[in-house]
Structures are given as C-alpha cells and as structure tokens.
Nucleic acid binder design. Structure first.
Length: 889
RNA sequence: GGGCGAAUAGCUCAGCUGGUUAGAGCGCCUGCCUUACACGCAGGAUGUCGGGGGUUCGAAUCCCUCUUCGCCCACCA
C-alpha cells in the first residue's frame, strides 16, 4: 500500500485499489451502538436501471464531501445507499426489450413479465452503485436497500393500511393525468407542464330550438364528442336567458343543456364553455355540480371509442381532432382558429402528452399530512439551502392536492387491497397480510390489479431503510437523519413527501437541512440530457482525469444556489482545474515526501526559537485556513472551502514555503529538521482539510507521511483544529513584506527583461519596520528567490536603476546600468504618483466632509484615515524618487 | 397569469450583514525545459460591476424601473 510514489500522477493506478482497501477495512460501516453524535444522509436512491450521469456525479460528490467532513469531525457518519425500483422507467425498459422480440407485456402476461423484470434487475440493475464507488462515495454498503425488498415492501403495506384506517386513503372516479403510451395514471407532479404553441378553435353550437347559437372555444376540439353541456357565468347578461335551454351538439346530434356556473370567466373568449366532464378537470367539477353525464370518448391509448359517432371510432386523438375540425368547417360552424400558447402536461417518463382521463384510482388525502409539514418549516425544525427554496416548499404545501397513488403498471408494490369475488358479499379487504379468503363470507378474493406510485415507497426511505416498522437499533440510532442533498426537481416528488411521512409515522422530521444544489448544464445552459446528446459521462472523466479531478472541478464550480456549467465538447478544459490541482498535489507530495524519508519530528518537539519567519508564517496561514475552510464546509459553501485549501496548498505552501525551505531540506542550510517538521505538519493539515473533496490523492499522500500509521486512513483521521496551526499576526505581516519585496524585484527584472539566469544588485532604501524585520530575518531567501547577488540597505546608489515603491516608505533600487531607460522610469513613477495623488485627493475630500465624519462609524473613519496617510506617504515617496532620479517635473 | 432568481474580465463564476486601489479558475500575452510539477514557474493585459433613476457621508452590494435570460407554480376553456 505504501510503495514509492510514481513520478507521474496516474489516478487510474491509485483510485480503485484505494477504494477496495477502504472497503476491506470497513471504514464506512457504521455501528448503531457506536459512539459519537450521528450524522446521517440518505442517498436519493437512483433508479435501479440508471447509469451514472453528470447530475448523479454532482449530487453524490456533494454528499460524500459532507459525510467525509463530518466523519473526520468524529461524528458517526452514516450514508445510506439504495436503489429505487422506478416503476414506469424500469417497466418501460423491459417492455422495449420485449418489443425487440416482437412481444408486448400483454403477450407474456403479468406473472411472466414481472419475472422478466426481476431477472433484468438482478442481472443489470444496481450498476450505478458500482459506479458510485468509482466516484469515491463512502456509503455504508452493508445497508444497501432496494425499494422492492421485502422489508421496505412491508413498510409500504403498513403505511397504506394505516393511512386507510385513518381515512386518508380513498378510491374514487376522478380526472387524473393519464399517459396513453405508458397506459397508467400519473400524479400531478409526474405530468410535467410545458409551454407549447397550440391553437384554439372557436366552434359554433346551435341552440336546439333553432333560435340562435353560441360560440365556444377549445384547445382540444376532439373532446367535443364527449360534451354534455355548455356553461356560462350565471350573471352574464348575454346568456342569462339561455340558461336552461339546450344545444343540439353538432356532429354528435346530442341534446345538451346550457348551465350557469361560477367557474366560467365571462371575460374569456365568448364567455361560453363547452363542458366535457370525462376529459377535463374543471369540466368534471362543473359536471358534478350540475349532475351532468360523463361521457368518456377515448380508449386508454387515446383513440376514439364507441361512445362517439361511428365515423370517428378508432381514430387516434390528433386524427380525430382534424376530423372534427373539418366537419365543423364543412358545416360552416368553425368560427375562427387562433394561435394559442398554453401549458400542456407531458409524461415525465416518456414525454407523451398526457390525457386528462376519468378513471377509478386510489388517492391519499394530503391536507392533513401537509399541515404538520408546513409547521415544521415555519418553526424552523427543517430548513432549506438556499433559503429561498423554502418558499417554494411552503407554497406547494399550502396548495397541496390529493395524491393519486395507483398506477396501472405491473412493476411495483401491488396495492394491498382485495375484493371478495362473491357478488352478494363484495367486501373490500385492506390488509397487512395477504388474505386467502374473504374475511366476511369466506369466499375467494382477488387483489386490486394496480401497483403503487414509486414515490409511495421512496417517501418512506428515511425510516423504512432502517428497518421500520420494526423497532430496530438502526432506527433508534439513525432516525431522524441530518442532511438531505438533492436537486430541486424532486423537491415535491420526494423531499416534501418524506417530510410528511416522517412526521406522520415517526413524529419527527426525517432530516434537519435540505440542501438543494443546482443542475449540470452545457455551455448553452441547457440541461444535460440523453436526447440532446450534450451529456458528460462522469465515468469517462474519471477514466481520463480521475475521480478527484472530477470532484474538485464540480465542487469548485458550484456555489450555493447556482448551476454548474460544463462544456461536454471540451472535457480537457472543463476539468482542467481539478486535473491540474490533483497533479500539483501529487508533485508537492513527491517533492516533500522525498525529503521526509528520514522522518519528521512532531511539530511540538521543535523549539520555538528554531522556527524561522517562513515557518511561523506557514503555520499562521495553516491556522487561518483551518478556520475558514471549516466554516465554509459547515455552511455548505463547499466551493469556498475548496478554494481556501487550494490557495493554501498551491500559493502559500508550494509557491512560497517550499521554495523557501529548499536549502534547508537539501541540507545546504541548517534547520533541516525543523523545516521537515513544519512542512510535514502543515501538509498533513492541508491534506486533511482537502480530503472530503479529493479523497484519493489525499489518502495516497497522507499514508506516506512519516506520522501516519500503516493501517490508518486519512478518511477517519481527526479534523484539524485551529490550534494545529499557530495564530501569528506578526509573521503574516513580516512574511508579507518579504513576499512584496521579492515580487517587486521580479517585476523590475521582467520589465527590463533581465535574463532569467542573471543576478542583480538590490538596494533597499528607507525600509519600513516590516521590511526591515523581513530582511533581518531572511535576506537569504530574498537573494535566492529574486536572484539578488548583493543586498544592501541604505541610500540609493549613484548608478541609475529601476526603482519601485513598496509601501509608505520602502523603495527598492535595482541598478541596471545600460538596461535602464530613465525616461521610462520617470514616466512610470510619475503616473503612479499621479494615481496615488488622485486617491489622496478623493480621500481628503471624503475625510473633510462633515457628513462623513459625523455619520460614519468611528472604526471606519479610523480605517479611512490610515489609508489616507499611507497613500499620502506613498505619493510623497514616489515624488521623492522621481527627483532622486533627476526626472523633469 | 402568479412567484422566485440571475445579469461583475473573452468564458465559468466568487464578492455572505453597504466602507477592497473589484477577485479566482480557465483562456490570452511575454520570458523561462530553475534537478516536485510545462497539467509547471515568473511576470502581464483585460471590467463606465446590464441601462436609467433613487436612498446614503459612502452602492457591485439596499430600493424603484426598464431590458435580457433562467427556474418553479397555475383547472381561463
């Protein structure tokens, strides 16, 4: 496990073996009787047939970051994985396979079909869980569930029966969303509304007594075959006299009444509406109020049925639409056709336009469940990130509608309802156990044909996955959970319903925080999808750049409340941040570990006096980074956490500290031991801070630190606390001065194109306190990193040189002989002085403004004064230098 | 039709409770194969913070308005 690092970073060589080792050691198995405060995340169970896509990648990366962070903080971090049987989706997949054999599910029959789905699921299902492992997901796989498992099925039955006993489940004939392709009912959430350009036809309906006619408007003319009334607003003066009269329905030749109903908007269209109770929600309700006939004119697959005149029968709904319109036109009853944009429901599984259909279905009465769920949000027992999503949730809860839970599918939890087959008994049995005989008459029983909505099992997952309805140790230990991480699309499908179920059956919210992250989109901001072909395959990314690169890129690109934009056409540049960073880490590790082979003393054993300015500085930066990164992780600002550690590792540690300590590590300078101790210490800290985001590289490097025990894993190492660094404001200031000085020399060198190998002389004129201390502490580093051969502090040399002003006082001069262009120096110093003077002037007027001085808080005024003084000093210094160079004014 | 959000460097985005000489990564330009890393090092350029108005001593940040894009919800046929 700890052979030397390969010269080249090759994630494919390290990631898989590492994951296997984590599994073997069981680091992520959580004991219900263990110690530590529980931290629980329930995975949004992917469809059992799903293949990992970018959305899963993002979703599961976030969860893994959180769970690893909390695990390292000493909490009993449990991430429960599972898969969803996904009724319609899975059934569709298997039906497609059957279709290749020229068969339909009806050809093979229910029993055989379900067998085939099981075989398919057992064979190919759950591959997404294996793919999550490639991502690094630290789930407790020993707890993996499938929503059709016996245990979870028992929970489903229990819940159905309980709700039924409470009168919250009922069966009835209502208008539901029907998918004519999947041949099943859908819930409101499953019928996705999409703005569509359509048309609206104005049809003339003649009065039966021949005294005139009415014009009605419709977007679905074919439904007129099932019209059983025309409705107008009861107070509409235009139609007051017509209420109670009859229409002779064209094409069908049926007498239908004109009724008055408040639901009609007199201002819309003609103010008269055709009423088709069997094919429209509103019409259905109006029909109920007026006791109208419900005439269903369509077959389940949306063809015209026998309730319509013979010439329309068998026509598909859009063909029927054409036929109806043509007949109206021929009869001179088509008044006009207009363009019309409106929302049309589409099946969320197959995209087919849903048909509102009158049918017998099972429903859950939601109002009583919604009230406590709304209260839990209002009183803060549950909160959302980003916060505004809470309004969305509340809005849905307030306007909740009953949930149609029956599906005319074969794949799913069969509804636990049986009907007595004896005609004169006809008892309905709702039972936890499967009855063999009628409980009333002893006759034979027949189970309801329908299955339950997939979400009827997933809304129970927070407790059903832990053994409910039994009283298990898991349930006692891990319910309620802590955080739920998911996409906003399933806020209503799943999240809201889990909250309702948790409160109803467990009396507690199932989690405290709901973190809703954004969507992965392409550069045109389109959602990635199979049909658009604009998806990114996370496995391909992992294959090419490694899971760490994928994870870092996703995390760093994802601020709270924003979407993640990636370019599917250019994976190289899309994932460059993660790829580059992982590679950088690898090389830092290679360099550092190479120098730690002799071991590194614990930081505590290094005498304070042996710490150099650079040592103190990097420890101070570690201290700061621990604080900020931890806070950001806690606040779900994962991108900020990642950025803080990135900056520490790359800019602070690699670019400055490691460059500074090289001579000590090489042994050309004394202090090698303390350098190794400090470097090992801060690298250890940084790896731990980064581990949640990049588990593989950090583990690989961390295991090779001298301090790491052979069998230990960073993933269960302790989270750094601020005291692991050292607060040291002075070191930050002084090393900052050192950096500024070096940078200034480098800038001069670049400006004058000094050849990279050449050394220069440097004079520091009138150094500030900080610069003075930096020079005293570490002139050697200045010489080396700025390639200075001779460093003097004193008056400016007579030789002409490039000049820079560092701060209020300090000026550096680099004599460059012929290279110096005096005019250029004068111009540059002049423009800098002018810029500074402008700032000074603005600042002076601000500070002499009574309004500002009297109204701004004292600390701000103080800060602004300091700024003014500093700028003034800089302006003065700049002017002085110009004079010293002999520049003309 | 309601509700919500976003517009900041060529691109993707930070900038959290008003006070920074407005930042990062990618890309771009210049110079470097400096024995950890060219997926690198050093340096650099680029922004009237969508337009207009307002509040304030002070606005990228708060308010109004316009424009342009998203998202969610909705039984006006």
């Amino acid at each position: 496990m700890t052979e030397p690092l390969a010269p080249q970073y090759d994630p494919s060589q390290i990631e898989a073996p590492l994951y296997a080792w984590w599994q073997e050691r069981g680091f992520y198995k959580v004991d219900a009787h263990g110690s530590g405060e529980p931290y629980v995340i329930q995975i949004p169970p992917p469809n059992v047939t799903a293949v990992l896509h970018a959305g899963h990648g993002l979703n599961n990366t976030i969860q893994d970051v959180l769970i690893r962070f909390e695990r390292m903080r000493g909490r009993r971090a449990l991430w429960v994985p599972g898969t969803d049987h996904a009724g319609i989706a899975t059934q569709n997949v298997v039906e497609k396979i059957l279709a290749k054999e020229g068969l339909t599910r009806f050809d093979v029959g229910r029993e055989e079909f379900v067998k085939r789905v099981w075989a398919f699921v057992n064979e190919t299902g759950g591959q997404i869980l294996e793919q999550l492992k490639a991502l690094g997901a630290s789930c407790d796989w020993s707890r993996t569930y499938f929503t059709l498992d016996e245990d979870l099925s028992r929970a489903v039955r229990e819940v159905f029966v309980r709700l039924h006993e409470q009168g919250l489940i009922y069966r009835g004939k209502y208008i539901i969303n029907w998918c004519p392709r999947c041949l099943t009912a859908l819930s409101n959430e499953e019928a996705e509304k999409e703005e569509t350009d359509g048309r609206i036809w104005h049809l003339r309906y003649p009065l039966a007594d021949g005294s005139g006619s009415l014009v009605v408007a419709t977007t679905r003319p074919e439904t007129m075959l099932g019209d059983s009334a025309v409705a107008v607003h009861p107070d509409d003066p235009r139609y007051a006299l017509l209420i109670g009269k009859h229409i002779r329905l064209p094409l069908v030749d049926r007498m239908i009444p004109i009724v008055g109903d408040d639901a009609v908007d007199p201002a819309f269209g003609s103010g008269a509406v055709k009423i088709t109770p069997a094919h429209d929600q509103t019409d259905f309700e109006i029909g109920k109020r007026h006791d109208l006939e419900q005439i269903n004119v369509m077959t389940p697959d949306a063809h015209i049925n026998e309730n319509a005149p013979e010439r329309f029968r068998g026509l598909e709904r859009y063909a029927a639409r054409k036929a109806v319109v043509t007949e109206f036109e021929t009869a001179g009853l088509l008044v006009k056709v207009e363009q019309h944009r409106h929302a049309v429901g589409h099946c969320y599984r197959c995209g087919t336009v849903v048909e509102p259909r009158l049918s017998d279905q099972w429903f859950v009465k939601m109002q009583p469940l919604a009230e406590p769920a709304l209260a839990a949000y209002r009183d803060g027992r549950i909160s959302f990130i980003p916060e505004r999503q809470g309004d969305n949730y509340a809005n849905w809860m307030e306007n909740i509608r009953d949930w149609c839970i029956s599906r005319q599918l074969w794949w799913g939890h069969r509804i636990p309802v049986w009907y007595c087959e004896s005609a004169d008994c006809s008892t309905t049995i709702v039972s936890r156990e499967t009855p063999t005989r009628c409980t009333a008459c002893g006759g034979s029983v027949r189970q309801d044909e329908d299955v339950l909505d997939t979400w009827f099992s997933s809304w129970l997952v927070p407790f059903s996955s832990l053994g409910w309805p039994d009283h298990t140790d898991d349930l006692a230990a891990f319910y309620p959970g802590t955080t739920l991480v998911t996409a906003p699309e399933i806020l209503f499908f799943w999240v809201a319903r889990m909250i309702m179920a948790g409160l109803e059956f467990k009396g507690e919210v199932p989690f405290k925080t709901v973190y809703l992250h954004g969507t992965v989109r392409d550069t045109q901001h389109r959602k990635m999808s199979k049909s658009l072909g604009n998806g990114i395959d996370p496995l391909e990314v992992i294959d090419r750049f490694g899971a760490d690169a994928l994870r870092y890129t996703m995390v760093s690109g994802m601020a709270v409340g924003t979407d993640l934009i990636l370019d599917p056409a250019d994976l190289d540049s899309s994932f460059a941040p993660g790829r580059n960073f992982a590679n950088k880490l690898w090389n830092i590790g290679r360099f550092l570990l190479g120098h730690l082979e002799a071991g590194a003393a614990p930081i505590g054993s290094v005498p304070e006096g042996e710490l150099t300015l650079a040592d103190r500085w990097i420890l101070a930066r570690a201290h700061e980074t621990i604080g900020t990164a931890t806070q950001h992780y806690e606040r779900f600002r994962l991108n900020d956490a990642a950025a803080a550690v990135y900056h520490f590792l790359w800019s602070d540690l690699a670019d400055w500290y490691l460059e500074q300590v090289k001579p000590r590590l090489y042994g050309t300078h004394p202090g090698g031991e303390s350098a190794r101790a400090v470097a090992a210490h801060v690298f250890d800290i940084a790896l731990r801070l980064l581990h949640p985001v990049m588990p593989f590289v950090t583990e690989t490097l961390w295991k090779r630190l001298p301090s790491s025990a052979e069998q230990a894993s960073i993933s269960v190492a302790s989270w750094p606390v601020e005291a692991d660094g050292r607060a040291d404001a002075a070191a930050l200031v002084d090393f900052g001065a050192l950096q500024a000085l070096i940078t200034a020399v480098r800038v001069l060198r670049a400006d004058y194109a000094v050849s990279p190998g050449a050394t220069v002389k440097l004079t520091v004129v009138d150094p500030s306190e900080a610069v003075r201390r930096a020079i005293d502490a570490d002139s050697d580093t200045i010489r080396r990193l700025a390639k200075v051969e001779q460093l003097t502090v004193g008056p400016a040399p007579s030789e002409a040189g490039g000049t820079r002003v560092l701060d209020d006082r300090t000026t550096i001069v680099v004599p460059l002989g012929d290279l110096v262009d005096l005019d250029k120096e004068c111009a540059r110093l002049g423009s800098e002085a002018a810029k500074m003077e402008q700032l000074v002037a603005a600042q002076e007027s601000k500070l002499s403004n009574d309004n500002f001085v009297s109204r701004a808080p004292a600390n701000i005024i103080e800060k602004e004064r300091e700024k003014l003084e500093s700028w003034r000093a800089q302006a003065v210094t700049l002017r002085e230098k110009r004079r010293a160079l002999g520049c003309a004014d």
